[in-house]
Design a protein around this nucleic acid. Structure first.
Length: 495
RNA sequence: GGGGUGUUGGUGGAAUUGGUUACCACGCCGCCCUCUCAAGGCGGAGGCUACGGGUUCGAUCCCCGUACACCCUACCA
């Protein structure tokens, strides 16, 4: 059993494409099949190496490894051409000498509809082509004379094509509804439907899992398989992923939310995003939603794939909902429950990028580092938070949140004197632990005649710059005696 | 214009292949916990299962129609 993921390298890796790759990979891994990667770069105008790199990076990030060498479709163009020419000789395709009609990409849809309307009004068969029944002798002569031609598949006038889709069930289409599709452009360039089929045959693909946008194309491709005398693979089409307004998710309209790399760059844990993606258009038999890579492989089945398109829910006007809330929740869930050692690797990369990493976090301060992660990860949503909200735990350079300063420091002017005094007590606390810090702080609050909460909240802002965070005594313990005292004194100057 | 596919609370999905008060997760609201914010625990709001017919003792589930959405209909992929 052999499957493939065949993206075209035009722009970044779209999350819908990433999901298609995931499902192919899951199915291959579950059944012990082979998972291949083919880059469909026949559109030389739009294909870029950078895009190919981003696809490979994306797959790697998601943990989807592919078998065998990656295939570039453009390298097979000669074979595709040969196949088309072979079909002419076999009488299954013909040369169309009609001059090429220029078509503007922007209004093709409209043009198609208009053309169809006009054809039905005049009663002409849109499939009639004067060259379809040209004698092979004349066709050969004109070709030999150098006259340009496109190659079209000779679709039978009657009959119908059928196939069983693993997701959408039995599909059938009358041949009369299929135009004699172009296989080869008049400049010799092979077209999509021909190329995919040829490559899938060459790569001995047995199962094609791809987006539902190809469901109706499948009939045409089956016709090509048959003309070529090759076995037809099994098909499974995946429901599309739509934007909140039910429109197609597109780069132009929706921007970076549809790019897989965005999730990497904005601090997603790969396992979390993979988990989320797997649940878009598929669900396991039971109700478990948090699934490891192994569990996904084990539970995956084509029968769990849905037919209705899935809406990727996000809100461009609300920064907190820049992407699907469930994806965000799932990422937080992974951050707070995954083994700390695994998290440490990712946080290290994040801190390095932010210039906050210190080598001792992996040597002498390893225990401290992991304990810190354990404490602060409880309320973080992305890896970015470790260098953002969590900045004060890894260095003295951090920002003060204005609202926090107003509420926890400036609201009580007495703190200007009380904070340095508290700093002195904290400094002398021996031993310096979570418990002794608490005892010190509470004792001094009593002595000064203020509520412990006043000190606690003020200290939180003084030590971390924020109004929210872990239990304050944990914070003292993590930040340490010296830095804690220093920050308390420094904060007094903000009042 | 033609063809295809689909439609369960705001979102992702369930519902023993017709059987009592339509279930889970995210999100939202409230309470508890509490030094804040999360997490966690408890509770709640939110659905005439798109609409209209039909079959049936009984329909989310089967059939027909309508509406809407998306896809294909290209010498794009």
């Amino acid at each position: 059993m052999r499957l493939r993921f065949a993206p075209s390298p035009t722009g970044y890796l779209h999350i819908g494409a990433a999901r298609t790759a995931l499902f192919n990979w899951l199915y291959a891994r579950k059944l012990g099949g082979t998972f291949l990667l083919r880059i469909e770069d026949t559109d030389t105008q739009r294909s870029t190496d950078e895009s190919t790199r981003s696809i490979i990076e994306g797959l790697h990030w998601l943990g989807l490894d592919y078998d065998e060498e990656m295939v570039f479709q453009s390298a097979n163009a000669d074979k595709h051409r040969a196949a088309a020419l072979q079909l002419i000789d076999a009488g299954k395709a013909y040369r169309d000498f009609t001059p090429k009609a220029e078509r503007a990409d922007a209004n093709v849809k409209q043009e198609i509809a208009e053309r169809a309307r006009a054809a039905s009004a005049t009663g002409t068969d849109h499939r009639s082509n004067p060259f379809r029944d040209l004698s092979s002798q004349e066709s050969n002569t004109r070709a030999a004379a150098g006259e340009p031609f496109a190659v079209r598949l000779k679709v039978a006038r009657e009959g119908l094509s059928t196939f069983e889709d693993a997701v959408y069930g039995a599909q059938e289409r009358e041949h009369s509804e299929i135009e004699d599709l172009v296989l080869l452009r008049s400049d010799g360039h092979p077209l999509y439907n021909l190329s995919v089929v040829c490559d899938d045959i060459e790569m001995r693909i047995t199962d094609v899992i791809r987006g539902q946008d190809h469901l109706t194309n499948t009939h045409k491709q089956i016709l090509i398989y048959e003309a070529l005398g090759a076995p037809v693979p099994r098909f499974a089409h995946l429901p599309l992923i739509l934007a909140p307004n039910k429109a197609k998710l597109s780069k132009r309209k929706h921007g970076e939310v549809v790019s897989l790399t965005t999730y990497r760059d904005r601090g997603f844990v790969p396992a979390a995003f993979r988990n989320f993606l797997a649940l878009l258009g598929w669900s396991p038999d039971d109700e478990q939603e948090l699934l490891s890579r192994e569990q996904l492989v084990e539970k995956f089945s084509l029968s769990g794939i849905h037919r209705a398109p899935a809406v990727f829910n996000f809100n461009e006007t609300d920064a907190r909902q820049w992407t699907d809330q469930k994806a965000l929740w799932m990422n937080a869930e992974y951050i707070r429950t995954m083994p700390v050692a695994e998290l440490a690797v990712m946080v290290r990369a994040e801190l390095e990028a932010a210039g906050l990493w210190k080598p001792e976090y992996e040597t002498t301060r390893r225990a401290w580092f992991e304990r810190s992660l354990e404490v602060i990860r409880q309320r973080f949503h992305t890896l970015k938070d470790f260098s953002g909200q969590g900045r004060a735990y890894f260095g003295d350079e951090f920002e003060f949140d204005d609202a926090a300063v107003k509420k926890n420091l400036q609201k009580e002017p007495r703190l200007r004197e009380l904070l340095p005094a508290l700093a002195a007590r904290i400094e002398q606390t021996e031993p310096f632990t979570l418990e002794t810090c608490e005892a010190t702080l509470r004792a001094y609050a009593d002595e000064a005649g203020v509520k412990a909460g006043l000190f606690i909240n003020a200290a939180r802002t003084a030590l971390t710059g924020q109004s929210v965070g872990p239990s304050m005594f944990e914070v003292f313990d993590l930040i340490g005696r010296e830095a804690s005292a220093r920050r308390l004194r420094d904060a007094a100057r903000l009042i």
